[in-house]
Design a protein around this nucleic acid. Structure first.
Lengths: 268, 268
DNA sequence: GGTTACCGATCGATCGATAGATTGTAATTG
DNA sequence: CAATTACAATCTATCGATCGATCGGTAACC
């Protein structure tokens, strides 16, 4: 009964190969699969977890998709939850490795961010299912495993935080708030995994180009809001939302009574 | 046994009230709850579906959270799936209503987009759970219901598509691709529901301000990528990702063989 | 006496997981 | 070399628990 609890740490191989000037690790992160059947199980699980969610996928679905009995599944996996953990851990390990290579090899912070965006988008397009599992199934992990995964995700986000901070410090970027800008870029790039499909209007590389542009715009500041014409009548959006949702305002001072007195001022 | 299959269409109330110059509908969309117990069920369901996902929530969890027996649950709901549908339908109805009011009352397209962003962000912060259900649980709907919800979501996105198109046509916005820009803004604003928590660094309105800025930057173009220094060594990100993920390139011509021949050119 | 609002008990189906047997093949031993 | 052992890889059958859902009621109210 194989153990997957520990996954070998990242190791750059000695043998490297060239890609037009820059050395890439070879063969990157080895697949955690121990043989072809195990690989099939992992691929089935990634696809099913992405499509139906962890709780929406039964072990019988898993077994059928991999062409095995449910009992045989357990020859390769610990539990269903450990299978999820292994998939997420492996995917995040690759993201962290890619980000570290980029950080290491990009001196100019603008180049670094260009490459981070490109890598994140290409990953989310080419490895769509695994990316969606990482992005959406964290809540299905048991609390202990979740700590490990969240720490990995935080480590990945730190590459982004540092890149944005360095770019702001160097005067290249202007953003209203660094954390919000980081989350905004990550969310918009991760979003690719929600809507991308092969055979669409654009190739993966074109989508990456577009998102590099969008991220560059987003970070380049200058846009003083929409410098809107002030001739428009005022419309309080917070109030509009509370009105439509009938929400009991959790922020923004004023008790329900005061609030009602202020906004419920009927015209007729 | 009440039926929730049909939800009344959007109707603007005759009685309106004023908010510093602009009329707001009152009382917006009425809650679909038929009484206080039903309201408790809906609120429990929204919270649990958001926290654990639809398939991760049992009807016993639902009943316990609402302080009822599972049997009593069925006095108010059709099936668990219909409950999900009702929650999503209601939430989307409110989004569409808010967007239509904004479109109606904003002449300048920059103002329109400002308000759309603000509304979307405030909704995703104040009504976080329902927003997360709408954004993440579409796949749990049965195929027929899903069609209805997807059409609603498409209708909502059309308000955004038109605003971006009008802004581009008017020369206010420059984006590399309108659809990608729309998805990028929606994803980054929806992301708020993933990380926002009350008592954080910023108030809801400040977060809305920040995202208006970010969206304005994103749409204002001008950023010709990161106009990076070309002194950096080249690093093919597509190749990097494929190397780390060991992905069998689905796009980008070249068979595995050719690819290997091209990139596996060993240095030593 | 119909209707509304609930409950305890329980249904059949499915859940994740395991027990125990069979097979093929590689390694070890007489 | 042949016989034996060991183990990896798979199966059928089945476990107890939980799933979504329903049955047949009771109590209160108009």
């Amino acid at each position: 009964m194989p153990e997957f609890h520990r996954i070998q740490s990242i190791e750059r191989s000695d043998s490297e190969f060239v890609s037009e000037g820059v050395a890439l690790p070879n063969p990157g992160v080895p697949s955690p699969a121990i043989n072809e059947t195990h690989q099939r199980i992992l691929e089935s699980a990634v696809r099913l977890f992405a499509d139906r969610g962890f709780h929406g996928t039964g072990i019988r679905d898993l077994a059928a998709s991999a062409g095995l009995s449910t009992a045989s599944l357990y020859h390769y996996m610990g539990t269903k939850e450990r299978l999820l953990f292994q998939i997420m851990h492996d995917a995040l390990q690759r993201l962290v490795l890619a980000a570290s290579i980029i950080e290491e090899q990009s001196d100019d912070v603008r180049v670094r961010l260009d490459r981070l965006v490109r890598m994140h988008v290409v990953t989310h397009a080419l490895s769509r299912d695994a990316s969606n599992v990482v992005d959406n199934q964290v809540g299905a992990l048991d609390p202990v495993d979740r700590l490990v995964i969240v720490e990995q995700r935080d480590a990945y986000e730190r590459f982004w935080a540092h890149a944005i901070r360095d770019g702001v410090d160097a005067g290249y970027f202007q953003v209203p708030d660094q954390s919000s800008a980081r989350m905004a870029i990550l969310e918009m790039c991760s979003g690719v995994a929600r809507w991308y499909s092969v055979g669409g209007k654009y190739s993966v590389d074109q989508i990456a180009d577009i998102h590099v542009d969008l991220a560059a715009n987003l970070l380049h500041g200058g846009g003083t809001r929409f410098d809107r014409a002030q001739t428009e009548p005022h419309l309080d959006i917070h109030e509009l939302v509370e009105s439509i949702w009938a929400i009991r305002l959790p922020e923004r001072a004023s008790s329900p009574g005061t609030k009602a007195a202020k906004t419920r001022r009927a015209v007729r």
